[in-house]
């Protein structure tokens, strides 16, 4: 058996396994001997807090806020583009102004669409 070319591999495998499992086993033994469990209803409560939890965690809530968030983000990014546009306005040609107008109108169209869909109405 020792003549097998895989013998040294098997020895290394067992050693590697022992290296991983021995600390786990020792920790388990230590916990058995020196940390007796002391459970009680307060300690085992689902949520750790000075106050007793009330009600059920399974409640429904509207996730509508993300629509507001996205619309805000779009116009926030628009403002980032508008600022350099305003700074360089006097030096710009008609084509640049038209391009910026298209950009703003595209976003305004999106806002109008969202408005028409009733997204801006909080329910």
């Amino acid at each position: 058996m020792t003549s097998s070319p895989y013998f040294s591999l098997a020895v290394l495998f067992v050693a590697a396994l022992g290296f991983g499992l021995a600390p786990l086993g020792l920790a388990w033994l230590w916990a058995r001997a020196f940390s007796p469990p002391k459970p009680n209803p307060i300690k085992n409560a689902i949520y750790e807090c000075g106050l007793v939890s009330k009600g059920d965690a399974w409640v429904q809530f509207r996730s509508a806020y993300y629509l507001y968030g996205i619309i805000f983000l779009i116009f926030d990014v628009e403002a980032v583009f508008l600022l350099p546009f305003a700074v360089a306005f006097t030096g710009l040609g008609a084509a640049a102004c038209a391009a910026m107008l298209v950009f703003v109108l595209l976003l305004v169209e999106g806002l109008a669409w969202a408005w028409a869909k009733g997204v801006l109405t909080w329910v």
């Binding site: 020196f34 007796p36 002391k38 459970p39 009680n40 307060i42 300690k43």
Partner: peptide
């Protein structure tokens, strides 16, 4: 001490761990 009669409460398996609220 880990062992012996003067070991702390938490090492005593029979000692209670709940303090009434």
């Amino acid at each position: 001490h880990l062992t012996g009669p003067d070991r702390p409460r938490y090492l005593d398996a029979n000692a209670q761990g709940e303090f009434p609220v």
